[in-house]
Each structure stands twice: as C-alpha cells, then as structure tokens.
C-alpha cells in the first residue's frame, strides 16, 4: 500500500459526473466518481448493466464529454489536451467493431504509431521496434500477416491490445476486453494486462463483468453502485463490504471468505 502511494498519480477524477448530453436534455448516468490511479497498476471498473461502466471509460478517453467534475491526466485537465497530445498519453480499446476487417494484423498494430509519425506516416526505427515489441508481448508474431476477418474473437482482442500497446501511452483504457471470450481466454487476456501494467509501468483501466477474476487479479477496483461508487484495493473493498451492495438484494450474495458470488436459492 505504501509502495503504491509513493508513485505518481497518472489519472485522477474529482466528483465526476458522466452521461449523455443532447440539445434538449442532459441524462446523467453516474455521478460522484472519485478515482486516483497510479502508474503501473491494473484497475477494473465493475457494476451492473447500464450503471455507466462504458460511459465512464469513454469519458476518460474523451470519446464523449464529461458533464461535471474534473478529470486530470498527469496533473493536467483532460479538456486542456488537444487530440494529438492526448493520443500520446491515452490509448483505447473499444467494443465497437472495426470499420475495416480487411487489414492485416501488422497493418492494424502499425496504426498505433500514428501519433508519432510524420505527415505521410513513415515509420522510424523506433516505431518499428515498438510495433515488434507489441506483437511479441501479445504473442501475435505468427499471426501478423493474417487478415482481421480470419481471426477468432480472442485473437482479435489481443491484436487490439497490441495496437494500444504500440501507441506507447502511459494510460490504456479497455472497454470490456473479455466479453465473448471463453474462461481460458478471459484469464489469458487479464493476465496479459496485469503483466503489461506491472512490467511496463502503465496504468491500465478496463471495464468487466468478471468480478471474481478482477478481485483476484486487479490492483485496484472501482465499484459503480449508483451511490457512493467505492474505489480501492479488492481486499480493502471486501472488508468494507462494498460488494454486498453491487447487485440488487435477493438475487446473489457475496461471500467475503472466498471472494465470490453465490446465487440465492
């Protein structure tokens, strides 16, 4: 705990409200979100469907505007970043499908270097090294000349993570990276994320429905429950009985001994 505290704060939110803004009305999805993320840690955002996990992630990545409160990245307010500056600090892995699945794995990962290349996109030696490293870390070397439509869901997810890694940003945000994957691939992706966070000192935030896995693997967690939105280390959250309020009562209950959910009979 003390060791984590010493490190720099990479991403911080203060009383953040998120939601959707149209000309007529403002729909607040979640409010009072307070986060403090240090570099080199893996963080999960969990909560029931529709509570605003993806909205929060997209707001942090400036895909959609924040409603109220502050988001600070490396001590600078998010709205003060221009898109190119932000591209060298935050990379995204979203749930939306790729526009073109005709790209090869290599071409897709290469796109991650765009913020650093010149006007025509020529790759320097450094760019090539970063691409190679990203491919190696995600074990994609043998697949690099495959087209994206030939890949399985798990492989494609690894490719998208490799692209974000090639972008070489301090923060990586992933929206439900484990959806549509089987148990083995879920564990594999999450373990990869953890090793990336710890070994490359990046701040990795992802949304997930795999609460039990997140409890075992993540350094910190944010529980969106629509009220207090507790944030902290998993064991600490268990002690605070934060998981008990995550789902409506009578459906599932949380067993703090094993860190797992039980179906109420």
């Amino acid at each position: 705990m003390t060791e984590i505290k010493k490190k720099n704060i990479a991403l911080q939110t203060k009383n953040l409200s998120i939601g959707y803004q149209t000309k007529k009305e403002v729909t607040t999805v979640a409010k009072e979100i307070n986060l403090e993320l240090h570099s080199g840690i893996l963080t999960a955002i969990v909560g029931v469907n529709g509570i605003g996990k993806s909205t929060l992630l997209r707001t942090l990545g400036k895909v959609q505007p924040q409603l109220e409160g502050e988001i600070e990245i490396n001590g600078k307010r998010l709205q003060d970043y221009n898109s190119l500056e932000l591209a060298s600090v935050v990379s995204l892995v979203l749930t939306e499908p790729l526009a073109s699945k005709n790209m090869t794995v290599l071409e897709l990962v290469t796109l991650g270097r765009q913020p650093y290349t010149n006007w025509i996109g020529a790759l320097s030696e450094n760019d090539k090294t970063k691409i190679r490293e990203a491919l190696e870390r995600l074990e994609l070397k043998p697949l690099r000349h495959k087209k994206c439509y030939e890949l399985s869901d798990g492989q494609l997810q690894r490719v998208m993570i490799a692209r974000a890694l090639a972008q070489d940003t301090a923060i990586i945000l992933l929206d439900e990276p484990t959806t549509h994957l089987d148990l083995y691939h879920k564990v594999r992706i999450l373990k990869l994320l953890k090793s990336i966070a710890h070994e490359t000192n990046k701040t990795i935030v992802f949304t997930t429905h795999e609460i039990e896995m997140a409890i075992q693997l993540c350094d910190t967690m944010l529980l969106l429950d629509g009220k207090t939105n507790p944030f902290g280390q998993p064991c600490e959250l268990i002690e605070r009985k934060a998981f008990e309020n995550l789902f409506p009562a009578n459906a599932v209950s949380f067993d703090s001994q094993t860190g797992s959910f039980r179906i109420e009979k």
Binding site: G61, K62, V63, S83, L84, E85, L86, A87, S88, V90, S91, L92, L94, E96, P97, L98, A99, S100, M103, L108, L111, G112, Q114, P115, T117, W119, I120, G121, Q167
Partner: peptide, 24 residues
C-alpha cells in the same frame, strides 16, 4: 488526398479510434 492519407488509414479503425490516434 495525399494530405489525408494518414487520417484515411486511421479511419479504417472507425471514427472513435481515429480520434484517439490524434486525428482531427
């Protein structure tokens, strides 16, 4: 078109990704 080559490539990922890559 030549000036747009980079953003065209980024657009292959979709608009949100293109924006996250620093494309105006």
């Amino acid at each position: 078109s030549v000036l747009s080559i980079k953003s065209l490539n980024a657009l292959l990922l979709g608009e949100n990704y293109a924006r996250s890559l620093g494309v105006d």
